[in-house]
């Protein structure tokens, strides 16, 4: 590969990578928030179940 080709490749990789990362960052920032809510609900449900089993609620 010529040096000009390497330069073009790294330029494309840099700008392509930056663009993709910006898009993924916005998606993760928004969708991640809803995932957190789901995770907390799941953990709370699990805590309730284990509380019922042991007779006390560990989140209290």
């Amino acid at each position: 590969m010529s040096l000009a080709a390497w330069q073009s490749l790294w330029t494309a990789v840099l700008y392509g990578g930056l663009g993709l990362f910006a898009v993924v960052s916005v998606y993760v920032a928004i969708a991640g928030f809803w995932d957190i809510r789901r995770m907390l609900s799941a953990l709370a449900a699990e805590a309730r179940e284990s509380g019922e089993t042991s007779g006390s609620d560990p989140t209290d």
């Binding site: 969708a31 991640g32 995932d35 995770m39 799941a42």
Partner: peptide, 8 residues
């Protein structure tokens, strides 16, 4: 709790 979604 094995509860993570894709974005998180």
């Amino acid at each position: 709790g094995h509860s993570l979604g894709t974005a998180l």
